[in-house]
Design a protein around this nucleic acid. Structure first.
Lengths: 231, 231
DNA sequence: TCAATAGTGTCTGTTAGACATTATGGA
DNA sequence: TCCATAATGTCTAACAGACACTATTGA
């Protein structure tokens, strides 16, 4: 007869090779870009996501921050978990399990080291198979969470124009948005507040600068949307 | 001078104690319930999430399925990743990293073993600190993804009434929905199709049975919602 | 007949998108 | 002046929620 509970019959003696794979994302020259680090010999250019094994006692976001800092030069402040993968697809470090973490970097951060380069998300070089999956998942997760999480604001400088904000939403969602509707919805959401600064970029009327300042949660919770993703 | 790329200077020699913590969810007697397994001696009742260490070569969902099967008696077919946790909060198996996975079980599945019991999600006994966090994250994730993922349909038998479907959405969202609006939106979504069966439960007009049968993705993608969660 | 639940039609206020218009700068 | 961009007002169609009503069963 079994007296001991199932969950405790197997102490966690088994240990796993774990990797934190980091998808550093930032808007670069009007596309969403990923920071890849150079892999392989100097002869042939090969690329992979920056990654490492978490150190004992280190949090996953801390590990991601450390990895991102190494390739970026500065430390990102916002992270979003992509998910864990343990498929058979090859990982560059032969990790059994990968935890994907997206690091969102504002567009005004000028980072990058000799060993890392930005690539447009939709025009990436060949990657280790597991990393290819992680990047795809990252893109999909970011798209799905963009209206539940302040992702877009983390890809912008602390102050920004509404046109700039809209263009980031369009990058993340992969489709154009209606300007007047976008601004109306933003107004109703109490997520931003105007500053008293204006910025003129080239010709055209200068735009007012705003900052992210979520003030209060919307009272009304509306109906279900049934927006099922069927990728 | 460094010739080798950063990512490869540290092979994944370091190994981690990893746990898959499973949140088995199912509607039981008009609430969302979690299946907990008995822990500790027979003297004092203590409870924890079912969990285990993934075996070499085993996928994470496979591990979750194996763990859930042990406590439930049958194998769940739908899983949703909750996220990975590596905080300092204590895990019953002293795992460094937990991967939380929700297993959704339809309401007509009668499972459960001597060592496991269903508890209402909002009235749980004391749990190991890490597991408390995993359960809370599961509830939050399920609530956030309910309209992007067919979660609700995985908590129902293969055929179900629209009232039943609505009640599951209400359980997941934690608020009441408007009947006519719910049905209109569902109609427009092409997610269900009627069967030619009807079910009368006690008094009242019998309800038509439907099945989950997503037919085509809605053509129009509408504006951004700015539904930021500020828990 | 009454109670209870399913399913639908109509009305109305809200909202999203189209379009037009004004505002304000640089070339 | 012309052009480009910002910002906003108006119109309309679509939609969400309220309400009422019919339909169909068991007690």
């Amino acid at each position: 007869m079994r007296d001991r509970p199932l969950a405790l019959t197997k102490p966690a003696a088994r240990r796993t090779a774990l990797a934190v794979d980091v998808v550093v994302l930032s808007p670069r020259s009007d596309t969403l870009a990923v920071l890849l680090s150079r892999a392989g010999g100097a002869a042939r250019e090969r690329w992979s996501l920056p990654w490492d094994t978490p150190r004992p006692g280190e949090g996953l976001e801390d590990a991601a921050a450390r990895v991102a800092t190494t390739v970026l030069g500065v430390t990102p402040v916002f992270f979003e978990q992509i998910g864990a993968l343990a498929d058979a697809r090859r990982h560059p470090g032969d990790a059994d399990v990968s935890i994907g973490i997206a690091a969102l970097v504002p567009s005004d951060v000028h980072g990058g080291t000799r060993d890392a380069e930005w690539f447009p998300l939709d025009d990436l070089p060949a990657l280790p198979p597991r990393h290819r999956t992680v990047v795809d998942r990252a893109a999909s997760v970011v798209r799905q969470r963009v209206d539940q999480s302040p992702l877009a604001f983390r890809l912008l400088p602390s102050t920004f124009t509404l046109s700039h904000l809209q263009s980031v939403y369009e990058l993340l969602l992969g489709r154009r948005l209606h300007k007047a509707s976008f601004r109306r919805a933003l107004q109703a959401s109490y997520l931003v507040e105007p500053t008293d600064e204006w910025r003129g970029e080239g010709r055209g009327r200068p735009a007012q600068l705003f900052r992210y300042a979520p003030r209060k949660r919307r009272g009304v919770r509306r109906g279900v949307r049934f927006d099922l993703f069927m990728d």
